[in-house]
Design a protein around this nucleic acid. Sequence first.
RNA 1: GGCGGCAUAGCCAAGUGGUAAGGCGACGGUCUGCAAAACCGUUAUUCACCGGUUCGAAUCCGGUUGCCGCCUCCA
Length: 501
Amino acid sequence: MGISVYNTLTGKKEELKEVHPGEIRMYVCGPTVYDDSHIGHGRAAVVFDFIHRYLEFRGYKVTYVRNYTDVDDKIINRANADGVPAAEISERYIKSYESDMEALHVAKPDFTPKVSGHMPDIIATIGALIEKGFAYASGGDVYFSVRKFFNYGVLSKRTLDEMESGARVEINEAKRDPLDFALWKAAKPGEPKWASPWGDGRPGWHIECSAMSTKYLGNPFDIHGGGKDLIFPHHENEIAQSEAAYGKKMVKYWLHNGFVQINSEKMSKSLGNILLIRDLLSRYHPEVLRYFYASAHWRSPIDFSEDNLLQAEETLWRFYSAFNKIQKLAKAAGEAKLLSEGQLWERLNKLEDEFKEAMDDDFNSAKVIGIFNDFLRLLNQSLDNGKFIKNPAGVALLEKSWRQLTRLGEVLGICQDDPAAYIEQGKLKGLKIMGLEAFAIEKKMQERSQARLDKDFAKADAIRSALLEQGILLEDSREGTSWNIDIKQVHKKLQPPGGKK
RNA sequence: GGCGGCAUAGCCAAGUGGUAAGGCGACGGUCUGCAAAACCGUUAUUCACCGGUUCGAAUCCGGUUGCCGCCUCCA
């Protein structure tokens, strides 16, 4: 069984059959760089990162292109508002996006082309469209004639007549048909412009992706991705342009990720509920975000709420707590032959197949999360078993199990940190937020340990509840007492009052 | 108005023809001086509603209701 993917073009899951054997070429619409990126951009990037990494995990040679739209009305508006050149705006927000992507551990695409760097390709594509009769120049603009392209509407599944009846298209004298869209826009004073056979101007929004995807990937290529909102008009127009210009099918599989909602509402500037990636990353470890993104299917809407993120954080913490225990045991036990029997051993041997089965089925990361949690329970069962962890072979099996979760988790970008470091950063961050110092906690813990030795449990319990009120949980075990951060209290403190639903 | 999608327990969320994964929460238990953590057990006879197809449907078909997205910039 191979990989199956849900294709917007057909509305069905289909078996993934690559155009070139052993190779997958994919193009994903990146951001228009006029502002800092929000968690919706983050989701698109992370979802296609899962897909990118999984295809590589499955042995494909993947060529991944994600573009920047750096020539656009919104950028020009922003530049005018800030009183700086448009190029400065786009450059600033490309840097911002790249730093967010790095922070989210999104693997770099092979190419990240910009519109401004591909004018000759874009102009050539427009030229070809005019030559073949699909486009016409009109007063310094160039338009694509949608009625000339027989297949217009295949992706968004609507007909030109339907569009026309519901049209809310502005009247534009230059267009022959109100549904025609711009390939080239004549420059207005003060706007960035490039020379072209139709006069100075700049490309329309959609043509860049046709020109650049063709340049880097050829036609047809395997996967084209983007947010659901791009289906119409952006991707519909891309198909029209590419297929008209090059006379070949453009893309085999169209993948569209679901939207992010905030407390079940649409995230939008007008609602004022935009959550920036960097704001979230100031409060959550990047793996928490990735875990959260992975916990829903990539095509479904996903609801960002503090409760949901908190849940992701707690569950991820369970993984790292277990890994932390395993790591310590492994260091103490040293090299040993692997225990090759029992439930854990058997499940470990099946884990990769389970993982593949889930991911092969339309990249079902949510199912993988379920499988991982199931496996974690087995790990904890063994960790609870005194005999098991005294046996070096058992410890070796635990370590191997942890390594396997790390190996498979790489595709989703979770379980990649050093456990001790992960736990440590979580505790340090918590302390900072709660305004506490580790040595003060340790001092209290010593006092409490003495009280416990003296059997003065009233005093010991008083110390414990005092710490708990400050957000510190104490955990007694055979090896002694350790402290932990009460994540819920930390986040309560972080949340603006009344900001949570 | 047109087009597309979604509706699974208190909450989050898998499951597209064979009798409901996983997480959070809650409750009971083991462990503990007591807790916490971890583990064990319980927590949806049922998948918005109505009808149909089928030996059999959360899964397919038709209808109803509700929610969301797109049709204008948007990941």
